[in-house]
C-alpha cells in the first residue's frame, strides 16, 4: 500500500515549534519542546516513540483536548487547512472536532457512550455538523458500519457498546471518525489493545479510508512494524522532542539518530537472523524535566561525547535529502 510523499497543495496539518508545559505544583516541566511536523493530503504521518514521549498530548493539543490545567501550550503554532487553531473560539473548535478532524483513541470503551445505541453515536456528528435528520443520519450510520466492514450492520446498529467485541468497538470508532469525511484523522494507538489480526484489519481500513477521502492520517504508535507497514512519513519522538524525521523508507534504511537505531535493533522480529541477545538500550525513557541540559538521550547513548552536554539542533547534513532531519552531534 504505497502512499504518497507528494505534497499536493498546502499541508492539511502544519505544526510549528509546539511547546507544552506541565504544571507540577511547584514548577513547570517541559512535556513537549519545539515539535514541528506537517501532513499533506493522502499521507499517513506517524509519531512514534516510547511511553511518556509526548505523543498523546501532542495529539490532544491539536483539537484543544488537553487537560488544562496541568498541561498548556507555551509556544508554537498549529494550523489546520491554513487556520490558526489557537485563535479559534470554543464553538469553532466544536465545529471542527468530529467534522474536519476525526479522532480514534486506544480504548474505544471510554470514548463510546455505554448507554447509547451504536447508530445514535455514529449519527450524532452527522446531525450536529451536517444538519441531517435523525432518520437520514441513521441510514448513513448503517452505511458507515458497512464501510468499516461490520457484518450484519443493521442489527449491530441497534446494539450497545458492551455487546460488541473490542475490535468491533474500534471499528465503530473509525466509523464515527470518518462520518463527516474529515480532512484529518488522528489515531492515537488505535490498535494497541487489539489482537494482531484485528489490528491489521483496522489499520488497513483507516489508511484506505484516509487515502480514499484525500485526507491525512496522523498515526500515533509505539510499534515500529505498524509504522513500516502504513506510514509515508515518520517522526521519532524522545523526551518531548522530535529527534529524527524522514520518509519511512529513508528512516528505516538510513536512520541517523542513535535512538532510532537502538529502537529498531531492540525489536525482536519474525524474519531475519536471530541474535542470541537483543540490543537493548540501557536505562529507561526520562520523565519530563525543566527542559535545560543537553541531549536527552545522552544517559542511554553509546555514542555520547562531551559535546552532547549541549543540545543538538534538528538538522540535516550532506547525506540527508528530502527533509530528512536528525538531532545528534554524532550521527550514524
Amino acid at each position: 500500500m504505497p502512499g504518497s510523499l507528494e505534497k499536493s497543495g498546502p499541508p492539511i496539518l502544519d505544526v510549528r515549534g509546539l511547546c507544552m508545559g506541565i504544571w507540577s505544583g511547584k514548577t513547570e516541566l517541559v512535556a513537549v519542546a519545539d515539535v514541528s511536523f506537517r501532513a499533506y493530503s493522502g499521507q499517513v504521518v506517524a509519531l512514534v516513540g516510547e511511553s511518556g514521549a509526548g505523543k498523546s498530548i501532542t495529539a490532544m493539543s491539536l483539537t484543544h483536548l488537553l487537560p488544562m490545567p496541568p498541561i498548556k501550550i507555551t509556544a508554537g503554532e498549529i494550523r489546520l487547512s491554513g487556520r490558526d487553531m489557537q485563535t479559534q473560539s470554543p464553538k469553532q473548535i466544536r465545529d471542527i472536532r468530529g467534522n474536519e478532524v476525526g479522532i480514534v483513541f486506544q480504548e474505544p470503551m471510554t470514548a463510546l457512550n455505554p448507554s447509547l445505541r451504536i447508530w445514535r453515536q455514529i449519527a450524532e456528528p452527522l446531525v450536529r455538523h451536517r444538519r441531517l435528520s435523525w432518520s437520514a443520519a441513521k441510514a448513513q450510520a448503517i452505511n458507515l458500519l458497512k464501510k468499516v466492514r461490520i457484518p450484519d450492520a443493521e442489527t449491530k446498529a441497534e446494539a450497545y457498546p458492551h455487546q460488541l467485541s473490542g475490535g468491533m468497538r474500534q471499528r465503530v470508532m473509525v466509523a464515527i471518525a470518518i462520518s463527516c469525511e474529515p480532512r484529518l484523522i488522528i489515531a492515537d494507538e488505535p490498535t494497541t489493545a487489539l489482537d494482531v489480526t484485528v489490528q491489521a484489519q483496522i489499520l488497513a481500513l483507516l489508511t484506505d479510508l484516509t487515502r480514499g477521502l484525500g485526507g491525512a492520517l496522523l498515526l500515533i504508535t509505539h510499534d515500529l512494524g505498524v509504522v513500516a507497514r502504513y506510514a509515508d512519513w515518520v517522526n521519532v519522538m524522545y523526551a518531548g522532542r522530535i529527534v529524527e524525521t524522514a520518509a519511512a523508507k529513508n528512516l528505516y534504511r538510513d536512520g541517523r539518530h542513535p535512538y532510532t537505531h537502538a529502537l529498531l535493533a531492540s525489536v525482536p522480529k519474525i524474519v531475519g537472523p536471530i541474535a542470541h541477545r537483543l540490543e537493548s538500550i540501557a536505562g529507561q525513557p526520562p520523565a519530563p524535566s525543566d527542559g535545560t541540559g543537553g541531549c536527552a538521550f545522552a544517559p542511554r547513548c553509546s555514542r555520547r561525547t562531551e559535546r552532547c552536554d549541549e543540545r543538538p539542533p534538528l538538522g540535516g547534513d550532506d547525506r540527508t535529502r528530502n527533509g530528512h532531519l536528525f538531532a545528534c552531534w554524532n550521527p550514524l
Partner: peptide
C-alpha cells in the same frame, strides 16, 4: 494468517 498479520519493521519488506 497470524504471522502474516504481524507488521515487520522494514518498509521494503512490508511493501
Amino acid at each position: 494468517i497470524l504471522l502474516d498479520a504481524v507488521a515487520v519493521p522494514d518498509p521494503q519488506i512490508e511493501r
